[in-house]
């Protein structure tokens, strides 16, 4: 398997607060890496600095793209532009992430216009293809975002992220704002798109049940640190770190016979190495 992304010793602090503390991990092509943690664990800051939406204080983010290995943070804005095609993001809030004053056609077309791809007719056709891929009606193109439900908007967000045919897609809590039945539809869609297009996902979530179902590997973050990482089943079945154990013990099972019995924080060793 080829490595697609390699993060080494990434650090970021705001003021004197250390948000991400020396995080390192690798991602293989066509796999899904889940990043779990509670609010304030630094997972969003981590992925945003991978996307260069935030500049980290130190550490490197290396990406193995069309042009070979490159350190994303050493690239100028101009050099970064071709990489923008390869790395895309799906946002959490399906309401805020679409410009309310643009039609779906304009929203989906914009990445193509920016990268100067094709002519008008081709772009239009490409938008139609994408709508079909995310199972939306072609008539959606003429509408504005307010006409869609949360799940449908998330599909539009996915279409926008995939229209440039990226290789790496960052999903920042992309399904946590959705109803459970919609959530499972979107997850199924993401899975289908992954096997069709060979996508690599960085999947940020706080819901461990979703991560367990959706991801191959998992990274557990706790106040800015990675406390555990490994293949999903391994981590979930035999967690090494007490914090992971605490998280797992807190998942409410839909089986009323499996009684919820969260571990007591006081008895755990939550010290960071």
């Amino acid at each position: 398997m080829t490595q697609l992304l390699s993060v080494k010793n990434l650090c970021k602090s705001f003021g004197d607060q250390l948000i991400v503390n020396s995080v390192s991990f690798d991602v293989n092509e066509s796999s899904t890496l889940g990043i779990v943690g509670e609010s304030g664990s630094g997972k969003t800051t981590l992925v945003r600095s991978i996307l260069r939406a935030i500049d980290p204080d130190s550490g490197s983010v290396r990406y193995n793209g069309e042009a070979g290995w490159q350190n994303l943070h050493e690239l100028s804005a101009k050099e970064l532009l071709p990489l923008r095609r390869e790395v895309q993001m799906i946002f959490q809030d399906p309401f805020a992430s679409l410009n309310p004053r643009m039609t779906v056609q304009t929203i989906l077309e914009e990445p193509l216009v920016i990268h100067d791809l094709g002519d008008k007719a081709w772009r239009k056709q490409r938008v139609m293809e994408m709508l079909e891929k995310v199972q939306l009606d072609p008539s959606s193109a003429a509408r504005f975002p307010h006409a869609f439900s949360g799940g449908q908007r998330q599909r539009i967000g996915i279409a926008r992220a995939l229209i440039l045919e990226p290789r790496l897609v960052v999903c920042d809590e992309s399904v946590s704002a959705l109803d459970v039945s919609v959530q499972s539809q979107i997850l199924d869609l993401l899975k289908a798109l992954q096997s069709e297009l060979g996508l690599t996902y960085l999947f940020v979530a706080h819901d461990l049940r979703v991560v367990r179902e959706f991801c191959d590997e998992v990274l557990v973050m706790y106040s800015g640190n990675v406390v555990e990482q490994g293949p999903v089943e391994e981590v979930f079945n035999s967690p090494d770190h007490d914090y992971t154990r605490l998280l797992l013990s807190a998942i409410p099972s839909p089986d009323p016979d499996e009684k919820l019995d969260p571990l007591d924080r006081a008895t755990l060793n939550l010290q960071l190495a």
């Binding site: 532009l81 923008r84 895309q88 946002f91 809030d93 805020a96 679409l98 914009e110 920016i114």
Partner: peptide, 20 residues
């Protein structure tokens, strides 16, 4: 705002972000 960040992430330059 998410939609502005989204535009930045697809590679829109400052002028486009401001005016569009």
């Amino acid at each position: 705002e998410d939609f502005v960040v989204a535009a930045r992430l697809v590679g829109a330059n400052d002028r486009r972000i401001i005016f569009r």
